[in-house]
Design a protein around this nucleic acid. Structure first.
Lengths: 207, 207
DNA sequence: GTCTATATCCAGATAGAC
DNA sequence: GTCTATCTGGATATAGAC
């Protein structure tokens, strides 16, 4: 009829444990935003959580394990963020532009997260196989969206990633908080689609 | 008739000093290529030069002063490398493509140098005013070349830097030593010039 | 689980003898 | 100029009491 009290206690402990883990991760993000990704230190992190440094090792095996959890969390956030834009809707120029704007919005919203997910900035860190699998899932989403737009071939795909990652990176590093390169996104997509002859414009819609 | 022996001695000492400084810088580059830009340490650097760590401070005031000298040296190398391509020759599509290929060649030839010059990867380092001035000189060269091609306006210039820095960065971080994105350079420049209506192609030269 | 205490290692930079 | 010795401060991680 009733669960044993031992089971209940265990569940509660697990919940509490997960809650603390989550709080540690939240503070890790905040700390990295303050001091940079590479500046994350176990001492300072513990201080912010209200623990002593060694206690963190009850929740994470190492500092890299914390980076790994952040990495995974970031890509889960990306999938959540892009969810609605990855459906099987008909693909038009406007839809594609909306999707890209939404994606870049995610990137510039948190430059620390951007660095962790998309750049190689931490000396020794490599994501674990499980976390990397989450990243691959998210990236497959976007390449599928491109195929739906009729853009095929490695060259076109590489050009696409080069162009958009270039504009995004310039925005983040040279005009953080601004719009200087974001403003160019729509035009860049037109330039790209015109060049590859995909999703033709309606007559007379140039400029 | 003869210079005083004191002056001669001073000159020789200065020469020797410059020679050692230069050797330290060479080893600093080599060390950074081995352990990453951020991994540069005064102890290890001294060991490679054949000195003890404190002796380095006779040649450079601090570790940042070494980064600063490297930064400056890198931009001087860039100007040297691009020298011939920045002259007042008539600008054609082919000339522009050659110049870009030459520039990207410089970037991918030494990814450590690329990171120091073009990315913000070292925690506390900011170039000094003098070194920054050298960087500005080099970058003005390229924007002048673009103007000569008839590409004017902030938007077009930002699109240009975004596109090319994007392809370069993808090349360096995702296919180091390869050609996957380098192959796309010519096509990217055609795409860009067509879109902005600069340096028109000869009739029927599309594809 | 959390703590104190500590092991171990590294860093940049300086003092002062020679 | 170069050295030895050291200062100061930081890091990750572990041992073992409670």
């Amino acid at each position: 009829m009733f669960e044993s009290s031992e089971t209940v206690t265990t569940d509660r402990r697990q919940l509490r444990r997960e809650s603390t883990r989550s709080e540690i991760l939240d503070e890790a993000w905040a700390l990295c935003r303050d001091v940079g990704l590479a500046g994350l230190s176990m001492r300072e992190l513990a201080k912010r959580v209200g623990l002593r440094a060694p206690s963190l090792y009850s929740y994470f095996d190492s500092k890299d394990a914390i980076y790994d959890a952040m990495f995974r969390q970031g890509y889960e956030q990306l999938r959540d963020h892009m969810g609605d834009y990855m459906g099987p809707q008909p693909v038009t120029r406007e839809r594609l532009k909306e999707g890209v704007r939404h994606y870049v919005e995610f990137c510039v919203a948190d430059t620390t997260r951007y660095q962790l997910l998309f750049q190689r900035t931490i000396p020794g860190f490599e994501p674990s196989a499980e976390s990397y699998a989450v990243a691959v899932l998210a990236l497959e989403d976007s390449s599928r969206a491109l195929s739906a737009a009729g853009i095929e071939g490695d060259a076109a795909l590489d050009m696409w990633t080069g162009l958009l990652s270039g504009l995004t990176a310039q925005q983040i590093s040279n005009d953080p908080g601004g719009e200087r390169w974001i403003r160019l996104l729509d035009d860049a997509i037109d330039m790209f689609l015109d060049h590859y002859g995909a999703l033709p414009r309606k007559k007379g819609s140039r400029k």
